[in-house]
């Protein structure tokens, strides 16, 4: 069934379109400077795949697995910022306005769900969660 691709459901965006999740990394440096990063990839198609991954993270109820996935994403970001002393992964979901709310000027809102602090060293990655 896996080989034939028939082991998955076909109800995309059904019965309703789910909320979308957002992940932001706060990159902390020893001098107190903070930079903000999003998970970044090379191509547009991979960007669609990141959305799938964030949906999975958001729907995971098993906290250690969620933390592990975010740690891996944070580690990928840390590799671009090896001088950072800490990376805080802030995970939440975006509430989109309805058509009428949008016409009244309402914008999307961000709801905080989880935050994890990760500290990585060049020899070995070490994690400090809240």
């Amino acid at each position: 069934m896996n080989g034939a691709g028939i082991d998955a459901g076909y109800g995309f965006f059904a019965p309703n379109v789910p909320s979308n999740y957002k992940l932001v990394f706060e990159v902390h440096y020893s001098d107190g400077k903070i930079e903000y990063e999003l998970p970044h990839v090379g191509g547009a198609d991979t960007g669609l795949r990141i959305a799938t991954l964030l949906d999975y993270v958001g729907q995971t109820h098993y906290d250690p697995l969620r933390e592990l996935l975010l740690k891996m994403l944070a580690y990928s970001t840390w590799q671009s910022h090896p001088n950072a002393v800490m990376i805080r992964a802030v995970f939440g979901f975006v509430t989109l306005p309805t058509v009428n709310d949008f016409q009244r000027g309402q914008k999307e809102s961000y709801e905080f769900l989880y935050a994890y602090d990760f500290r990585f060293h060049k020899e070995a990655a070490e994690v400090h969660s809240p």
Partner: peptide
Amino acid sequence: AKCIGPGWWDGSSLWRALTRP
């Protein structure tokens, strides 16, 4: 599966799909 969701009948699901990053 789409017919079950009320959002596909009033257009709100389509709006969400098109505006969802």
